[in-house]
């Protein structure tokens, strides 16, 4: 399968099933478009088709290069992975990542929060150290021969239970020595309780910190007020700037991560606002909300959002060439050391490799399913009781979704989010169409940036 498009003056040809990305001139672009529906077309037919536009010599030259790529399986390649990936998914499941909900409570009242002010449709609760220990023990004992394990401290707001975070991290370091494992700890915070002591701790122990910020002050404060209705921008931004600067100097990862909604469809300005504040690892993504929510992204918003991605991509190229570039998470594509095809086609691992743990130790397929009793898998002391659900999640890969079969982005998005699929279609093996449309645009933008920076 071949996907070709023009963007920002570049002709880009993506050979979907090999992952090869080619930047081509108009001649090759036109010839590939003519050939791709019927590869058996004779060279004479191609030459005749372009008579008057390109000389026979030019067409012959283009065909020679195209055939060389085809012979090298870099163009017009086919999907040869299905059997191998399905066999791979039949191997015994190991758990390698936990999302630890150390607090089902929050000191903000974000309007779009899927966790309903951190409480996940339930009651306020903090995870005890004992429950957290049992969760880490569960992870280690179910991780098989996987050495790299991940634990994300999540909420609600995890800093409302910081002492447990600190103690669980220390316990994890003990487990590393005992079992020859490596923990990658991460933490997501709204910044309200962030202080010097917590920053120092995170700089020592957290491989990544996700700092929640939505953009310009008026945007952030509209969507992320405190429980008394006051905005939180002025309180958290100076702390985030200091934290990010420290982590940059230490070579540690962080992300400033926001959500854009129908209220700020000009979100490229929010991304650039972050960059102008000094942040260089940035993520802003579209809200996923019930269609009738006033802040939800609507189908008629898609054109505006795509224009914003174009504007953002062009500005990122300009800043990169000026030596003041930044990383935008949703334009990240690694063309030289990207993940293997098993990873790409298997998806995020929710319900199998990745589980969420509630403050009282219940297991769910991921944080988005927490609070939905239909998806309660078991608990950390007795393990997974719903192996039927695990089997469903295990078979939920790109090949399970008919919508992905003809989509050029399937090796980049991995089939999308099971929770989004459930929320919109009451099944986990479908897709969220607005999300798909925007993912395709982001892939196109990301590849165009690669082309521009390769000039």
């Amino acid at each position: 399968m071949v996907h070709q498009y023009r963007n920002n003056g570049y002709n880009i040809v993506l050979d979907v099933d090999s992952g090869s990305v080619h930047v081509v001139d108009d001649l090759v672009y036109d010839v590939i478009a003519f050939l791709k529906d019927d590869l058996s077309k004779a060279d004479d037919a191609v030459t005749a088709r372009f008579a008057g536009r390109y000389s026979p010599e030019e067409v012959s030259e283009a065909l020679e290069e195209i055939r060389a790529l085809e012979k090298n399986h870099q163009l017009f390649s086919r999907d040869i992975y299905r059997d191998a990936v399905l066999d791979f998914r039949n191997h015994p499941t190991v758990v390698k990542a936990l999302c630890l909900h150390v607090a089902h409570d929050c000191n903000l009242a974000c309007r779009y929060c899927f966790a309903q002010e951190g409480e996940y449709h339930g009651v306020r609760a903090l995870m005890s150290y004992e429950t957290g220990k049992a969760a880490l023990d569960y992870l280690v004992s179910h991780s098989g021969n996987r050495r790299n394990l991940e634990v994300d401290f999540f909420g609600g707001e995890p800093l409302m239970n910081f002492e447990v975070v600190r103690k669980l991290t220390a316990y994890g370091r003990e487990l590393e020595k005992m079992h020859d494992k490596h923990f990658r700890f991460t933490l997501t915070t709204n910044g309200v309780l962030l202080d010097e002591n917590i920053m120092d701790f995170c700089n020592r122990e957290m491989d990544n910190v996700v700092l929640s910020l939505d953009g310009r002050k008026e945007i952030h404060d509209k969507m992320r007020p405190s429980r008394n209705g006051k905005g939180s921008y002025d309180l958290i931004v100076p702390k985030f700037q200091k934290f990010a600067k420290q982590r940059k100097e230490l070579g540690k990862q962080y992300y400033v991560r926001g959500t854009f909604t129908h209220y700020n469809l000009d979100f490229a300005r929010d991304v650039l606002h972050f960059a102008d504040l000094g942040f260089d690892q940035i993520s802003i993504e579209p809200v996923v909300a019930p269609a009738d929510a006033p802040y939800a992204i609507r189908p008629e918003d898609l054109g505006t959002i795509k224009e914003q991605y174009d504007l953002l991509a062009q500005e990122m190229i300009r800043r990169e060439k000026e030596g003041r570039g930044f990383t935008f998470f949703h334009f990240m594509i690694d063309l030289t050391g990207g993940p293997c095809v098993y990873k790409r086609l298997s998806g995020c691992g929710s319900g199998t490799e990745y589980l969420a743990v509630t403050p009282w130790g219940d297991l769910y397929p991921c944080h988005q399913f927490v609070g939905n009793e239909e998806f309660l898998l078991g608990n950390v002391t007795e393990g997974v009781k719903r192996s039927d659900l695990v089997s469903i999640f295990k078979s939920c890969n790109v090949y399970a979704r008919k919508e992905c079969r003809d989509c050029f982005a399937r090796y980049y998005c991995s089939g999308g989010c099971a929770a989004n699929s459930w929320n919109f279609h009451q099944r986990i093996d479908s897709v969220y169409e607005i999300g798909c449309e925007l993912e395709r645009k982001r892939v196109e933008s990301a590849l165009m940036i690669k082309a521009a920076l390769a000039d």
Binding site: D17, S18, S20, V21, H22, E65, S77, T336, G338
Partner: peptide, 29 residues
Amino acid sequence: MKHIKTLNTRSLQESMKKGGCGECQTSCQ
């Protein structure tokens, strides 16, 4: 090549032969 510039070096076919160890990071995105 005169008309085509290929940007990447690692093919998915190659990763089928060598990949699948499961040691990489999970990512819900």
